[in-house]
Nucleic acid binder design. Sequence first.
RNA 1: GGUCCGGUGGCCGAGUGGUCAGGCACAGGUCUGCAAAACCUGCUACGGCGGUUCAAUUCCGCCCCGGACCUCCA
Length: 473
Amino acid sequence: MTALRFHNSLTRREEDFVPLDPQHVKLYVCGPTVYDLAHLGNARPVVVFDVLARLLRRLYPRVTYARNITDVDDKINARAREAGEPIGAITARTTSDFHRDMAALGNLPPDIEPTATGHIPEMIAMTEKLIERGHAYAAEGHVLFSVGSFADYGKLSGRNQDELLAGARVDIAPYKRDPGDFVLWKPSHEDTPGWDSPWGRGRPGWHIECSAMSWKHLGEEFDIHGGGADLLFPHHENELAQSRCAFGTSFMAHTWLHNGMLLVDGEKMSKSVGNFLTVQDILAQGAWAGEAFRMLLLRTHYRSGLDYTQPALDEAKAELDDSYAMLARAPAVSETLVIAEMAEWALEPLCDDLNTALALTRLRDLRTLENAATVGGSAASVLHRIGKGWALVPGQAAAAFRQASAVLGLMQGEPKAWLQGGDDSSAIEAAIAARITARAARDFAEADRIRAALLADGVVLEDSAAGTVWKRV
RNA sequence: GGUCCGGUGGCCGAGUGGUCAGGCACAGGUCUGCAAAACCUGCUACGGCGGUUCAAUUCCGCCCCGGACCUCCA
């Protein structure tokens, strides 16, 4: 496979990916704060970086993908107060909901899923290091990171201190030496979760959590850090500052990747606009919806903005219908060099900054080739366009399609289950048998009557030389 | 206001200094008892104004429009 390239947010350029250790690639992605059901926007980075992890695993002998669970946060505390529910109950339930929803979208679990509450000692240790090295100070029970102590502060997000100051739109706490200084540790009252620390009972700031967890599981320096573009500042800027200053390193992650924001019906999701959608809302549309939503996400390049609309989801479902139908028709074949070559070709775009949209286009081409081979027709124009001289053997393009799709986490289900899944189908089979008898007797009126009746029940028939097949719509 | 990222055909959406994206929709065709599916053909766009160039959707400048971020939203 060709060399991996990424658009690195840190350098704002596309560059070749060079692992720190080619035997072991390390990836960290910011996970959810578990206070409520995952919404559509939460799903995008999970899907995008799931594809990245699958791709890395294909290219390198060992990959460690860590994605955290933020289970200590003031939003969680607020939710617990409102709902009168214990914090532990909220975080446990929300974490399990998150796992369920992400699995429904076809995501594999990360290799490591550290929780913030499980890493308080590491956070305290890092905070102490930062104080020792003169990058942080304690004041009134708080510990603050001193942005003025780090010359590179602002480099990741592309801002300078003056801009940050000018843009500050919150009241500046009196104990801050610099308005840009941010909290590493803050005091907790009796009614708020807290841990004993050298600065009294308190809880960590948000940013230090990710620095501590990535340090614990991936080391002081690692390969790739991912997350939503909205986290670039302040979260990632602060993480980077904490980690580099605590360890005296020249970088935290070598490559920083940021996915674009998801809109719903052209607007940022919000409850007031009424376009707020959770993953559960999508999944409720049917058994097909999880995979269709994943397809929808991957049809757009991860760095671009993406507008979710219902017609777009329906189109993604229709594409899956067509693909599963193709897979259902294709005969099984044994692995060949051509199949490997086809799959490699389809996946090639992923190496160019994870171009999933182009990879999907190539999968469509494989689908057309397979259809031409199994159903009939000429694929000469497709072969000419893609510049390939593949001989069309039924089953081969389908096998390549299936292999390549696995890296996208798509179209791995049983075609029959996708097309015909649902309630008991014996009545449908019986009706089809009756229709075959009618057709054999050239009683087309009866045959058409049966077909129309099935269609009314959402069942579409397709006659071919090989017999009659059916699918639900 | 500042920083950054975008504006591609009816819709979605890649990409490129000059020969084709692709999908959906639509219109023809082949096949079929009729359909459906599949395949074939057609539909030829790159926000506006300048500039560089033999040649710009692709590079540069300005303008317009949209979005993200500007201290804890993926």
